[in-house]
């Protein structure tokens, strides 16, 4: 929702896009989790599992937690 520079103009079309972005992220995370599970059971490689976890973490940090707001909305000087 931080995409709206003009909140009063935020129509329902944009909202649906933002909602969909959350849903798509969720789908990717779910797929990665299942992949993780099968990798863990059939090709137990610690490196691969850690890489998968880092990929999931990057998605959560970026899209769910909005880490970019720290520098996009945070310039004071």
């Amino acid at each position: 929702m931080s995409d709206h520079s003009h909140p009063e103009k935020a129509g329902s079309a944009i909202d649906r896009n933002v909602y969909r972005k959350g849903f798509n992220t969720f789908l990717v995370l779910a797929v990665l989790t299942v992949v993780e599970y099968f990798v863990g059971l059939w090709f137990p490689s610690a490196v691969l599992l850690i890489l998968l976890a880092i990929a999931k973490a990057a998605l959560v940090l970026n899209i769910f937690m909005g880490i970019t707001k720290l520098w996009r909305g945070g310039d004071h000087h």
């Binding site: 993780e36 059971l41 137990p44 850690i50 973490a57 959560v60």
Partner: peptide, 12 residues
């Protein structure tokens, strides 16, 4: 996300 593989998947 990090605890799940560390507890349940990594290692023998």
């Amino acid at each position: 996300i990090f605890f799940y593989p560390a507890i349940y998947l990594i290692g023998l």
